Amino acid sequence: MAQPTTSTPLAQEQSKHLQKSLGRFDILLLVVAAVISIEVLGQVSGFGGETFTWTLILAVTFMVPYGLIFAETGGAFTEEGGVYVWTKMAFGRVVAAITSLFTWVTQPVWVGGAMAFVAVETWSEYVGHVEAGSVGDYIFKLLFIWITVSSAIVSLKHGKWLPSLGAILKVVFLTFFILVTLAYGVQHGFNGLDLGFFAPTLAGFLGVTPLLLFSFLGFESGNSAAGEMKNPAKDVPISVARSSMIAAASYLLPILAILLVVPLDQITGIGGLFGAISTVYTVFGPAADAMLAVSAVV
């Protein structure tokens, strides 16, 4: 059954210029890049063992159903535009415009605020010092923002490589970190964790849930570029299913690894993640500082 045409004549004309260059693996990487937020791992781990418990609960009760919804929707309605098009088909242009606003309004704040500051702080701490408020600080942040913006507005035939590379590096980094943590634990032992340590509390729920829910968002983002996918009806559902499993593991396993090696009172924001990294990388001996610098750049 053919899908109803909801786009204007101008939109249909412009869509002819879209190049269908996204295969199944490309879609998988785009979704992984959107859903996995490494920077939040240290922050949520500061709530202790219940972070792992709430992450597991939310992965089962929120991430999986959420991913299934957009796997079905993305495979059934494959027009360029994703959430905007789906909402317009159901409720009209006004509601679709408001939905798009709420969907994307956090991105400028996230990229220009949190991520830009995390990037410059990480670079300054582990690669080369950048004085806060200096000309170099502003140049670094502006370059970070505009590289991100440029990768989002160019054709995905070329622009897909930046988020795809980011997704690959995220997964490689987290996998390497987990393996090194296991090696460190074998040599030095792990923190003593009992079942009571993982007991969930209301305070932990209120502190962890907003961060995790925001981090889990992104499964619907791929269909914004459905017009550039080779076969969205078949590739989107499979890619979303696979990316949801990768995302769940990429949150649960590193959080557990951080809890195993870093004392709770030392887990604070981005410092919690790099505190864990600097601790476990001592297994490399004199090369530990170099390994830490490479991980910071990644």
Rank of each mutant, 00 (worst) to 15 (best):
A183H: 06
E131W: 06
H158M: 09
L156F: 15
T181V: 12
V180I: 14
A152C: 14
P163L: 06
G128Y: 14
S150T: 10
S151P: 05
G166D: 04
V127T: 13
H158I: 13
L179K: 03
S134T: 00
A152R: 02
L169C: 14
L156E: 04
G133A: 05
V171Y: 08
S164Y: 09
V135G: 12
V180T: 08
F173W: 09
V127A: 11
K160T: 07
W146H: 07
I153C: 11
Y184P: 07
T148F: 13
V135E: 10
L156C: 08
S155Y: 09
G136S: 10
V149G: 06
L143D: 02
Y126P: 11
I153Q: 03
A132D: 05
L162S: 12
Y138G: 14
S134D: 06
P163V: 03
A183G: 10
I139Y: 08
D137G: 12
L156H: 03
K157F: 12
V135M: 11
I178K: 05
K170S: 11
I147T: 14
T175L: 11
V154E: 01
F176C: 12
L174A: 06
E131A: 15
K141P: 14
T175Y: 06
T148W: 07
G166V: 02
L179M: 12
Y138D: 11
F140C: 04
L169N: 04
V149W: 13
K157N: 10
F173M: 08
V171D: 01
I145V: 15
G159N: 01
V127D: 08
D137F: 15
K157D: 12
I168L: 14
G166T: 04
S150G: 15
V130S: 00
L169E: 06
V135D: 10
I147K: 03
G166K: 06
F144K: 00
E131T: 08
L182H: 07
S134E: 05
V171E: 00
V171K: 00
T181C: 11
V135Y: 08
V154G: 11
L156V: 15
K141V: 15
F140L: 04
S150N: 00
F176K: 02
L162H: 12
Y184D: 02
V172M: 07
V130T: 03
L143M: 12
V149C: 13
K141C: 12
K160R: 09
F140H: 04
S150L: 15
A152G: 08
W146L: 14
V171I: 13
A132C: 09
